[in-house]
């Protein structure tokens, strides 16, 4: 597949949050402030990229030769958990300033469905290494894009007069519905 098409469709048309509904938990949790949304977004891009390249390698260099494909779920989730720990430790040691902006979001990412989803998707779609890299960057960039747009809307929403029962998450879902309509217009792009 054309790499550019792959990138665009993973970024906009099949956006993880608005079209596949993956990664909703951090989407609701961290999107109340713009600064946290950016921090979370960058951390997610980094972890998704690293974790999916590692899982790709594990799958094609260990599981396939040994015919252990059925182990992929167990192996990938363990690999992701280990990778997140490693990244957190590495940043703590080497870049305190980076830790200040990203560190707090790293533990949140292990239970982020988006990471596991991308790792599994790369394998089911039979992407090669380059396609895996492009796909994982595009998916996570799409995640960050929606997270940031959503955070700016929610900052305004906090000051508006919302009915009692709709305060907080329910009204956020209405906003997400409207954004999904906007994003569905990208469907004719490719």
């Amino acid at each position: 597949m054309n790499l550019f098409t792959l990138f665009l469709s993973a970024l906009l048309i099949n956006n993880v949050i608005l079209s596949k509904f993956i990664g909703m938990c951090p989407f609701l949790g961290v999107s109340t402030k713009l600064s946290s949304a950016i921090g979370m977004g960058v951390a997610v891009i980094f972890v998704i990229f690293g974790a999916s390249v590692l899982s790709w390698a594990l799958y094609y260099y260990a599981l396939v030769p040994l015919e252990l494909q059925y182990m992929k779920l167990i192996c990938f989730i363990l690999l992701i958990a280990a990778f997140v720990q490693f990244v957190e430790m590495f940043i703590k040691k080497n870049s305190p300033s980076l830790y200040k902006s990203l560190g707090i979001y790293l533990p949140l990412i292990t239970t982020n469905c988006a990471v596991l989803y991308v790792a599994l998707d790369n394998v089911t779609q039979k992407y090669n290494l380059i396609e895996t890299m492009v796909n994982s960057i595009a998916v996570s960039a799409g995640f960050m894009l929606v997270l940031v747009i959503f955070a700016t809307i929610r900052e305004r929403l906090a000051a508006s007069d919302v009915p009692e029962a709709w305060k907080g998450n329910p009204i956020a879902f209405v906003v997400a519905a409207i954004m999904a309509i906007a994003f569905s217009a990208f469907a004719g792009l490719v």
Partner: peptide, 19 residues
């Protein structure tokens, strides 16, 4: 049946539980 409908239905039900 689309994504928009999913978000809207969820919003209504979540608001109902909150109410």
């Amino acid at each position: 049946t689309t994504q928009t409908g999913a978000f809207l239905t969820f919003a209504v039900l979540a608001a109902a539980v909150a109410a």
